[in-house]
Simulated assay, not measured.
Amino acid sequence: MSLRFDVDAVVLDIEGTTSATGFVVDVLYPYSRSRFGAVLSERSTDPDVVRAVSQVRDLLGEPDADAVRVEKALHEWLDEDVKATPLKTLQGLIWSEGFARGDLVSHFYDDVLPVLRRWHGDGVRLYVYSSGSVAAQRAWFTSSPDGDLLPLVSGLYDTENAGPKQEPDSYRRIAGSTGVEADRLLFLSDRPGELDAARAAGWHAVGIRRPGEPYYEQGVGDHAQAGTFDEITISTSGSIT
């Protein structure tokens, strides 16, 4: 059964939606874990690292926390899958370096890239909204198995430039930034709380349910759902046939 939408733009979650959570957890997380200490020491004056360290201290309520304490907090948040902005910032820096060196190549489900290319070719604007940092998203789309996909994407949003993914105001900010009316935006995600927030902001929302993903058994509540991107048809013409 095909789901049909008349919209101008599609906003994509990554983990569990375009790409396997297992790849992130089994490949990217260990890669970043092994390099937190090095990035904190070797890039201690980098503005992004300075900002992230300050944010870690604020979240801990420990303004004098040293690099050892900051690294310990990062490991704890990683273990608990806490979507802390400074953790995502530092992971993004580390992953960007790894993709640039060729240590890492991103993952996309087989159905995703052909559909994204078709939508883009049809004039649908594509955006990304992920808990991973903008830097990580950029590296992810630049270093795909099919080469650089960044030209397909009109904009990247994370918890720092948009806000938390389960708050409707974050989706309102994205709509304002893109200039696309809320009812002309479609959000794809595997997480029901995110879908709820997008719908509360006036967006269309579809839950992507892939066997083996963490939210598969939970389902997507009362949202429309699809198992693959092939099941979604987009029109920007004002009429769907």
Rank of each mutant, 00 (worst) to 15 (best):
G121Q: 09
A182L: 02
H107M: 14
D46Q: 01
H75A: 10
V82E: 08
S19D: 04
S2E: 13
L12S: 03
D148I: 06
V50F: 04
R191M: 15
R199Y: 02
G92D: 12
T178Q: 06
A201G: 01
D46K: 04
L90Y: 03
D158A: 09
V25E: 07
Y129E: 02
T233F: 05
A100P: 08
A224D: 14
Y171R: 08
D158M: 11
G238Q: 12
R4Y: 04
R209N: 06
P145W: 01
T21G: 03
Y171T: 10
F99I: 09
A201M: 03
G61Y: 12
V49L: 01
R191L: 15
T45Q: 12
L186Y: 11
S41V: 10
T178V: 07
D48F: 02
M1N: 14
A201W: 03
V105P: 01
V153A: 00
A198H: 03
Y129T: 00
F141G: 00
V27G: 02
D58M: 10
W95C: 04
H75V: 02
S32T: 09
E213N: 12
K83M: 09
I94Y: 05
L104K: 06
D110K: 13
V128G: 12
R51A: 14
R117I: 04
R138E: 10
D222C: 11
S237L: 15
A139T: 03
V11R: 01
I94D: 01
R199N: 03
S177D: 15
T142D: 08
V180Y: 08
Y215K: 06
L60M: 15
G219A: 04
R117G: 12
T85F: 06
R118L: 08
Q91Y: 09
G207D: 07
G61N: 13
P114C: 10
R199F: 01
F36Q: 10
G121T: 11
